Computed example of a mutant assay.
Amino acid sequence: MTDSERKFGWVDDWAKMTGERARIDAKVHKTAIVYNTKMGKVKEFYDGTIQRMDSGESKGGIMREKERINRIMSLLQRIWEQQSEMRFNQIISNLQHMYSSQNEGYGQRMLIENGEEVKSSYLDFFYLEDDKWEEFLQRMVDSQERDYK
């Protein structure tokens, strides 16, 4: 073993522990982790399923269609117009809480208070894919339209 191998051997252990911690966090927060393998980049979900990311990747993420932006913004507009007295961020916050409650607490974060882990009202939707959000918003619009007929 060379001096440099001995000096920096801890880095491999640290990297392995970091990966394990990320996997634990993904399970707790019902998210996913992304990492490289010999076969390419993969996404490992909190339930243990692993999905190979396709080769049409750009800057580490899957390329998404631009048309989704107009669709999602249109759905948000329709929802907001039915509740125009609300501020934009109120609408977004309310929609996120509704999505979370309908999807096993997706995005729910815990916090430490007086040394105990407790649920917080903070939701983290960073990893929610747009298609899931769009489906949810479409259901909300459909529901609003049924209610207002």
Score class of each variant (00 low, 15 high):
Ser4Gln: 13
Ser4Val: 12
Met86Gly: 01
Thr18Pro: 00
Leu123His: 02
Glu129Arg: 06
Phe125Val: 00
Ala26Pro: 02
Ser58Asp: 10
Arg52Pro: 01
Lys43Arg: 15
Trp10His: 13
Asp142Phe: 06
Asp142Gln: 11
Met17Ala: 15
Ser100Pro: 02
Asn70Ser: 08
Ser4Tyr: 09
Glu145Gln: 14
Phe136Asn: 03
Lys7Pro: 00
Ser58Pro: 01
Gly61Trp: 08
Gly19Lys: 14
Phe88Asn: 08
Arg6Gln: 12
Asn94Glu: 12
Tyr46Glu: 00
Glu134Lys: 09
Arg146Gln: 14
Trp14Thr: 08
Gly115Lys: 15
Phe126Ile: 04
Leu111Thr: 09
Met39Cys: 11
Arg78Pro: 01
Gln82Val: 10
Met1Asn: 10
Met86Lys: 08
Lys149Gly: 06
Ile62Gln: 13
Lys43Asp: 03
Asp131Gln: 13
Glu44Arg: 02
Met63Phe: 10
Phe88Leu: 12
Val118Ser: 05
His97Asn: 12
His97Trp: 08
Ile69Met: 05
Glu117Gly: 04
Trp10Leu: 08
Arg71Lys: 12
Val11Gly: 01
Val34Asp: 04
Asn103Phe: 04
Ile33Cys: 01
Asp25Trp: 01
Ile62Ser: 09
Lys66Glu: 15
Gln96Phe: 03
Phe45Glu: 00
Ser121Cys: 11
Val11Trp: 05
Met98Cys: 11
Phe8Ser: 12
Tyr106Asp: 00
Lys16Met: 05
Met73Glu: 15
Gln82Asp: 10
Gly40Met: 07
Gln77Ser: 13
Gly60Trp: 09
Tyr99Cys: 04
Leu123Asn: 01
Ala26Gln: 01
Tyr35Ser: 02
Gln77Tyr: 11
Met1Glu: 11
Glu67Phe: 10
Asp3Trp: 06
Glu104Gln: 09
Val11Thr: 07
Gln144Asp: 11
Ile50Arg: 08
Leu75Arg: 03
Ile50Trp: 06
Val42Leu: 11
Met110Tyr: 10
Gly60Gln: 14
Glu5Cys: 07
Gln96Asp: 06
Arg139Ile: 03
Ser100Glu: 01
Asp142Glu: 15
Thr2Leu: 14
Gln102Ser: 12
His97Phe: 05
Lys149Asp: 07
Ser101Thr: 09
Lys119Leu: 09
Glu145Thr: 11
Glu20Ile: 06
Asn103Cys: 04
Ala22Leu: 11
Glu67Ala: 13
Gln144Arg: 06
Lys66Thr: 14
Gly56Trp: 12
